[in-house]
Amino acid sequence: MKITIKRYHPHFDPPSIDMEYEVPENMTLLEALHHIKQTKDRTLSFASMCRSGVCGSCAVKVNGKEQLACEYRAQDGDYIEPLSVVEVIRDLIVDFNASLDTLQRASAYPLQMHSGMSEDEERLVERQSDCILCHSCYSSCPVFETKSSFLGPFALTRAYRYVVDSREEEKRAHIDAVIENGIWDCTLCGNCTEVCPQGIDPKSDILMLQSMASRFGYVNPNLSGFGSFGLEF
Protein backbone atom coordinates (compact mmCIF):
# COMPACT_ATOMS: atom_id res chain seq x y z
CA MET A 1 0.00 0.00 0.00
CA LYS A 2 1.03 3.60 -0.49
CA ILE A 3 1.07 6.65 1.75
CA THR A 4 1.89 10.22 0.79
CA ILE A 5 3.98 12.50 2.99
CA LYS A 6 4.20 16.24 2.69
CA ARG A 7 7.92 16.97 2.76
CA TYR A 8 9.39 20.33 3.72
CA HIS A 9 12.92 21.69 3.72
CA PRO A 10 13.34 25.48 3.65
CA HIS A 11 16.68 25.32 1.79
CA PHE A 12 15.14 23.53 -1.22
CA ASP A 13 13.24 24.96 -4.16
CA PRO A 14 10.35 24.38 -3.95
CA PRO A 15 10.54 23.98 -0.17
CA SER A 16 7.53 21.69 -0.05
CA ILE A 17 6.60 18.63 -2.14
CA ASP A 18 4.40 15.57 -1.71
CA MET A 19 6.19 12.22 -1.85
CA GLU A 20 4.58 8.82 -2.16
CA TYR A 21 6.05 5.75 -0.44
CA GLU A 22 5.22 2.06 -0.59
CA VAL A 23 4.90 0.62 2.93
CA PRO A 24 3.89 -2.81 4.28
CA GLU A 25 0.38 -3.28 5.62
CA ASN A 26 -0.54 -3.70 9.27
CA MET A 27 1.82 -1.12 10.68
CA THR A 28 1.30 1.83 12.92
CA LEU A 29 2.08 5.05 11.09
CA LEU A 30 5.17 5.44 13.25
CA GLU A 31 6.40 1.98 12.24
CA ALA A 32 5.77 2.93 8.62
CA LEU A 33 7.80 6.15 9.02
CA HIS A 34 10.68 4.21 10.56
CA HIS A 35 10.42 1.65 7.77
CA ILE A 36 10.72 4.42 5.15
CA LYS A 37 13.66 6.02 6.91
CA GLN A 38 15.54 2.76 7.36
CA THR A 39 14.94 1.25 3.93
CA LYS A 40 13.98 3.99 1.46
CA ASP A 41 14.78 7.55 2.38
CA ARG A 42 17.22 8.62 5.08
CA THR A 43 16.28 12.26 4.70
CA LEU A 44 12.72 11.77 5.95
CA SER A 45 12.57 13.66 9.26
CA PHE A 46 10.06 13.07 12.04
CA ALA A 47 9.97 13.01 15.82
CA SER A 48 9.22 10.01 18.01
CA MET A 49 10.21 8.51 21.31
CA CYS A 50 8.05 6.18 23.40
CA ARG A 51 5.91 4.58 20.62
CA SER A 52 3.25 4.01 23.26
CA GLY A 53 1.29 7.24 23.32
CA VAL A 54 2.74 8.96 26.40
CA CYS A 55 5.69 11.11 25.30
CA GLY A 56 3.73 13.45 23.01
CA SER A 57 6.44 13.62 20.30
CA CYS A 58 4.86 12.09 17.22
CA ALA A 59 1.56 13.88 16.52
CA VAL A 60 1.00 14.60 12.80
CA LYS A 61 -1.99 15.22 10.60
CA VAL A 62 -3.42 12.26 8.72
CA ASN A 63 -5.93 13.18 6.02
CA GLY A 64 -6.36 16.53 7.73
CA LYS A 65 -6.90 15.20 11.25
CA GLU A 66 -4.43 15.15 14.11
CA GLN A 67 -3.21 11.68 15.16
CA LEU A 68 -0.39 10.22 17.21
CA ALA A 69 1.69 8.35 14.64
CA CYS A 70 2.33 5.60 17.20
CA GLU A 71 -1.36 5.00 17.85
CA TYR A 72 -2.65 5.22 14.30
CA ARG A 73 -2.72 2.28 11.88
CA ALA A 74 -1.53 3.45 8.47
CA GLN A 75 -4.09 2.96 5.67
CA ASP A 76 -3.62 2.85 1.91
CA GLY A 77 -3.81 6.35 0.45
CA ASP A 78 -3.20 8.23 3.71
CA TYR A 79 -1.93 11.79 3.37
CA ILE A 80 0.53 12.73 6.13
CA GLU A 81 1.50 16.31 6.94
CA PRO A 82 2.95 18.18 9.92
CA LEU A 83 0.81 19.77 12.60
CA SER A 84 -0.75 23.16 11.86
CA VAL A 85 -0.40 26.42 13.80
CA VAL A 86 3.12 25.50 15.00
CA GLU A 87 6.09 26.38 12.78
CA VAL A 88 7.38 23.54 10.60
CA ILE A 89 11.14 23.01 10.91
CA ARG A 90 11.68 20.13 8.52
CA ASP A 91 9.25 17.53 7.11
CA LEU A 92 7.09 16.44 10.05
CA ILE A 93 9.25 18.10 12.73
CA VAL A 94 7.69 21.21 14.22
CA ASP A 95 8.61 23.86 16.77
CA PHE A 96 7.11 23.51 20.26
CA ASN A 97 9.02 26.36 21.95
CA ALA A 98 6.48 29.10 21.29
CA SER A 99 3.52 26.87 22.08
CA LEU A 100 4.98 25.53 25.33
CA ASP A 101 5.38 29.17 26.41
CA THR A 102 1.59 29.35 26.72
CA LEU A 103 1.88 27.27 29.91
CA GLN A 104 3.92 30.04 31.52
CA ARG A 105 1.59 32.74 30.20
CA ALA A 106 -1.46 30.91 31.55
CA SER A 107 0.19 30.28 34.94
CA ALA A 108 -0.65 26.62 34.33
CA TYR A 109 1.24 25.44 37.39
CA PRO A 110 0.51 25.15 41.10
CA LEU A 111 0.56 28.55 42.81
CA GLN A 112 -0.06 27.83 46.47
CA MET A 113 -0.67 24.20 47.34
CA HIS A 114 -1.07 21.94 50.32
CA SER A 115 -0.94 18.15 50.22
CA GLY A 116 -3.71 15.58 50.52
CA MET A 117 -6.88 15.04 48.55
CA SER A 118 -9.79 12.60 48.51
CA GLU A 119 -10.68 10.02 45.90
CA ASP A 120 -13.47 12.20 44.55
CA GLU A 121 -11.22 15.25 44.45
CA GLU A 122 -8.56 13.32 42.53
CA ARG A 123 -11.17 12.31 39.97
CA LEU A 124 -11.78 16.00 39.18
CA VAL A 125 -8.27 16.33 37.74
CA GLU A 126 -7.68 12.77 36.57
CA ARG A 127 -8.56 13.15 32.89
CA GLN A 128 -6.98 16.59 32.50
CA SER A 129 -3.71 15.34 33.98
CA ASP A 130 -3.59 12.56 31.36
CA CYS A 131 -2.40 15.29 28.95
CA ILE A 132 0.83 14.42 27.14
CA LEU A 133 1.30 17.86 25.48
CA CYS A 134 1.26 16.29 22.01
CA HIS A 135 -0.15 19.52 20.53
CA SER A 136 -2.97 17.82 18.60
CA CYS A 137 -5.49 20.21 20.15
CA TYR A 138 -3.25 23.20 19.52
CA SER A 139 -2.92 22.27 15.85
CA SER A 140 -6.67 21.81 15.43
CA CYS A 141 -7.63 25.16 16.98
CA PRO A 142 -9.06 27.68 14.45
CA VAL A 143 -8.68 30.66 16.80
CA PHE A 144 -4.96 30.90 16.00
CA GLU A 145 -5.79 31.82 12.39
CA THR A 146 -6.97 35.20 13.59
CA LYS A 147 -5.27 35.52 16.96
CA SER A 148 -1.77 34.14 17.39
CA SER A 149 -1.58 35.33 20.99
CA PHE A 150 -4.40 32.95 22.06
CA LEU A 151 -3.38 30.74 24.99
CA GLY A 152 -4.86 27.69 23.27
CA PRO A 153 -6.52 24.52 24.48
CA PHE A 154 -3.80 22.59 26.29
CA ALA A 155 -2.67 25.54 28.39
CA LEU A 156 -6.27 26.31 29.34
CA THR A 157 -7.00 22.68 30.22
CA ARG A 158 -3.90 22.64 32.39
CA ALA A 159 -4.92 25.92 34.04
CA TYR A 160 -8.33 24.37 34.73
CA ARG A 161 -6.63 21.27 36.14
CA TYR A 162 -4.96 23.49 38.76
CA VAL A 163 -8.06 25.58 39.44
CA VAL A 164 -10.16 22.52 40.32
CA ASP A 165 -7.34 20.82 42.22
CA SER A 166 -8.60 20.83 45.81
CA ARG A 167 -5.05 21.34 47.06
CA GLU A 168 -4.72 24.67 45.24
CA GLU A 169 -5.48 27.72 47.36
CA GLU A 170 -4.97 30.52 44.81
CA LYS A 171 -7.90 29.83 42.50
CA ARG A 172 -8.60 33.48 41.76
CA ALA A 173 -5.05 34.08 40.49
CA HIS A 174 -5.42 31.18 38.07
CA ILE A 175 -8.61 32.70 36.66
CA ASP A 176 -6.95 36.12 36.40
CA ALA A 177 -4.20 34.55 34.28
CA VAL A 178 -6.54 33.10 31.64
CA ILE A 179 -8.76 36.11 30.96
CA GLU A 180 -6.56 37.99 28.51
CA ASN A 181 -6.04 36.04 25.25
CA GLY A 182 -7.73 33.15 26.99
CA ILE A 183 -11.15 31.77 27.78
CA TRP A 184 -13.29 34.38 26.02
CA ASP A 185 -11.43 33.96 22.74
CA CYS A 186 -12.39 30.30 22.39
CA THR A 187 -15.14 29.76 19.79
CA LEU A 188 -16.19 26.49 21.46
CA CYS A 189 -15.94 24.68 18.11
CA GLY A 190 -14.85 21.48 19.85
CA ASN A 191 -12.06 20.52 17.41
CA CYS A 192 -9.65 20.11 20.33
CA THR A 193 -11.96 17.66 22.06
CA GLU A 194 -12.40 15.65 18.90
CA VAL A 195 -8.68 15.20 18.19
CA CYS A 196 -7.35 14.60 21.72
CA PRO A 197 -5.74 11.12 21.80
CA GLN A 198 -6.22 11.00 25.56
CA GLY A 199 -9.94 11.68 25.54
CA ILE A 200 -9.54 15.05 27.25
CA ASP A 201 -12.26 17.65 26.63
CA PRO A 202 -10.59 21.10 26.55
CA LYS A 203 -13.76 22.70 25.22
CA SER A 204 -15.66 21.68 28.31
CA ASP A 205 -12.75 22.72 30.55
CA ILE A 206 -12.79 26.18 28.93
CA LEU A 207 -16.56 26.42 29.45
CA MET A 208 -16.02 25.57 33.11
CA LEU A 209 -13.32 28.25 33.36
CA GLN A 210 -15.75 30.74 31.80
CA SER A 211 -18.40 30.00 34.36
CA MET A 212 -15.87 30.24 37.19
CA ALA A 213 -14.63 33.56 35.81
CA SER A 214 -18.22 34.83 35.86
CA ARG A 215 -18.46 33.89 39.51
CA PHE A 216 -15.31 35.92 40.15
CA GLY A 217 -17.04 38.92 38.53
CA TYR A 218 -15.61 38.72 35.00
CA VAL A 219 -17.98 39.40 32.13
CA ASN A 220 -17.79 37.70 28.76
CA PRO A 221 -16.84 40.60 26.46
CA ASN A 222 -18.54 38.86 23.52
CA LEU A 223 -21.90 39.19 25.25
CA SER A 224 -21.50 42.76 26.53
CA GLY A 225 -22.59 44.06 23.11
CA PHE A 226 -26.21 43.34 24.03
CA GLY A 227 -26.02 46.23 26.47
CA SER A 228 -25.88 48.70 23.59
CA PHE A 229 -29.52 47.99 22.74
CA GLY A 230 -30.38 49.50 26.08
CA LEU A 231 -31.74 46.22 27.37
CA GLU A 232 -31.23 45.30 30.99
CA PHE A 233 -31.12 41.64 31.93
Partner: peptide, 13 residues
Amino acid sequence: LDSIGTPFSRQDN
Protein backbone atom coordinates in the same frame (compact mmCIF):
# COMPACT_ATOMS: atom_id res chain seq x y z
CA LEU B 1 5.22 15.20 45.24
CA ASP B 2 1.69 15.44 46.63
CA SER B 3 2.29 18.97 47.91
CA ILE B 4 3.47 20.23 44.52
CA GLY B 5 0.47 18.83 42.67
CA THR B 6 1.04 15.21 41.63
CA PRO B 7 -2.41 13.69 41.06
CA PHE B 8 -1.77 10.28 42.63
CA SER B 9 -4.70 7.86 42.64
CA ARG B 10 -6.41 7.80 46.05
CA GLN B 11 -8.02 5.17 48.17
CA ASP B 12 -9.83 5.92 51.42
CA ASN B 13 -8.74 9.53 50.90
